[in-house]
Design a protein around this nucleic acid. Structure first.
Lengths: 363, 363
DNA sequence: AACTGGCACTTGATTCTACCGACTGCCAGT
DNA sequence: ACTGGCAGTCGGTAGAATCAAGTGCCAGTT
């Protein structure tokens, strides 16, 4: 068709990834500037950037190459360039400076984790807020799924005549409850006796197993026990659906300036299942960033997601994520997500007595 | 100064509230039309409205009066009129047609309440989503505060060596837990003995009382028991802070078209305490609607809030709310909020055995 | 061969003007 | 007490002119 097909001027020379060093520098300059200003970046600006010691004309010719190769686009002729998803991808893979959190933010994290008390649910909830405050993006925290936790305790507590609360404690510290309505009235003593029977029979089973065992364990069968079994099954199902915490939704309204975009992204975040799947998908593919269409989820094509796993014990089932525009400060987001995820993981492992190194101080 | 000072043409005639019947009709027409179209309403449209059988000229002269009295404003000369907060207020107090939910929505509510299972927290959470789906506004649900509930059961469950879970069941069915780390290792038997002692000693107390009683109840004192006491205090505090559930935040992005407004409203909804205070305030003043600045909360001056109480037992401490622009469909919002709130109240009373009439069917 | 300065050109944004249309306020007439 | 008619007021829109940013290309330099 036209001119030179292969664009790199010195294929053998020193390179960052696939790109000429200078072109990489140019791309980097475009990305960082565009992330900061949301304005297409022109060759003149890039030429002034330290690290690019050539004239704007030269930058321009490199820019056409970068555009030909799909790293940059022009919104229209005679505008500056903006990065494509591929451009951002190259940036995070090869150029992103080691993410450094500002010291004030570092402190904020430290204070947070020094102070957290209370239970996991609360910690995760508040961590999502923390994360959204460390960055200008919306945060998502998916609680580690309870995996195959076993029953640690079962108890029946009478709340009112013919109204009983079933409380189940699982080996991972989760507590679930279900109210049961009775047909017949049961005395406190009877409930107590049933409780101890159930405990003895069910401790150590997984939930579904426990549900099956109920009649055997109690040594009798009745409508009531059947409903206990049903409740256990229900709990088992509920345990599988991971909890999602959304932090700082208002950040989305800062990050996007089209109200319609805000609406559609928010409405997606309302579907918790989608969020979980999305994050898990990205993690499963071994990524920590999904840019634009990389996650294959149409409605979020204008978004980037930064994810970090939260592992408790051996399995990485939890996750923290940041959701923002593709025009995102990746180093910052990555740093924030990693700090919070690792700190969370540590906390949750601590809580289980799987103490690790023990040096919770510096690093 | 100028012409007639008293505006009403026939002060003795039949009136709706403070207003001439015709003027009331005009106001009503303006409100309903403006709510629907978000466009200033002109005299010509109003004159065509059934119920107003006068010419546009007459409507115009009434409109100047309505404007003089503060019910309407013109965004600029030669535009139609839009209602003021006072105008909306008059509308909801005197003109709002009995709120009628469309049958599909009615069905939605019915199905929802037929299907809900599981515990209060989940029900409230999902109710907030339901409410936001019944209307185009964001919904808020504040859980009834647990008031002065008493301890129903206390249990210590060992999770790992030196790691114990304290599970407390309250008389209203709430279950709270706290993990405790031990210095010394305690055997299962010892924990069991302590549990039963605690149960015997603390059942029936309120939480703070229970916290004080711990050493007495257990018949001994130790670091461990002290931490149990502390945990109980913590739980008591946590119980006081009511849970807030936010439904359909994306609806805010539909309701407002300035992204900055969306942001600021969202960021307010993130502060749960503020939301609780706001709703309670409105309810305490005996209102079910707060329009614009009526709630005295500056940042929400462009919003209206529709509230309905959720009462469990005798005290109305919970609430459901809808948050939208002052240009809101009040009849619809009121109807939706009332249905959900009363249905929720009923549910929660049922769950406590305070069965009422018993006719859960039609109505 | 690689780079640079210069220049013509393209094109979105901005400003200005003119104009249209939607309403109003007023008034004379019924 | 209402109404029809009419002049007057503005916002919104369309079109033309201008502006400024930034490009692509090319001839010239090192």
């Amino acid at each position: 068709m036209s001119t030179k097909t292969r664009g790199s001027k010195a294929p053998g020379g020193p390179a960052a990834g696939e790109l000429d060093l200078r072109r990489a520098a140019i791309l980097e300059a475009v990305v960082t500037e565009y992330v900061g200003t949301a304005t297409p970046v022109g060759s003149a600006y890039v030429a002034r950037t330290p690290g690019v010691n050539v004239s704007s004309a030269t930058v321009r010719s490199d820019m056409v190459a970068l555009e030909r190769d799909g790293y940059l686009v022009q919104p229209h002729t005679s505008a500056g360039r903006i990065p494509t998803d591929k451009g951002y991808r190259f940036f995070v893979d090869h150029l992103a400076p080691a993410g450094v959190l500002g010291t004030p933010q570092r402190q904020r994290v430290k204070r947070f984790f020094d102070r957290v008390h209370g239970e996991m649910e609360e910690m995760l909830e508040r961590a999502s807020t923390l994360l959204s405050e460390l960055t200008p993006y919306a945060a998502v925290v998916v609680s580690p799924s309870h995996g195959s936790s076993t029953v640690r305790s079962v108890q029946l507590v009478s709340l009112a005549p013919r109204l009983v609360l079933l409380v189940v404690v699982l080996s991972d510290g989760a507590v679930e409850k279900r109210t049961l309505e009775l047909d017949e009235e049961l005395s406190e003593e009877e409930l107590g006796r049933l409780s101890t029977r159930l405990i003895q029979g069910l401790v150590g089973c997984d939930l579904d197993g426990a549900a099956e065992l109920v009649p055997d364990a109690a040594g009798a069968s009745s409508d009531f026990l059947a409903s206990v079994g049903r409740a256990l099954h229900e709990i088992a199902r509920a345990e599988e659906s991971d909890q999602v915490y959304l932090g700082g939704p208002s950040r989305l309204a800062e990050a996007f300036d089209a109200v319609e975009t805000v609406r559609s992204v928010l409405s997606i975040l309302e579907q918790q299942l989608v969020v979980v799947t999305l994050l898990r998908d990205v993690l499963d593919r071994g990524l920590s960033v999904a840019i634009g269409t990389e996650h294959g989820f149409e409605p979020l094509a204008s978004c980037a997601v930064v994810v970090a796993p939260v592992s408790v014990g051996d399995n990485e089932t939890g996750a923290v994520g940041l959701l923002g525009p593709t025009r995102m400060n990746y180093p910052q987001a990555l740093a924030a997500a990693h700090v919070v995820s690792s700190e969370l993981s540590e906390r949750m492992n601590d809580a289980f007595g799987h103490h690790r190194g023990g040096d919770r101080g510096g690093h």
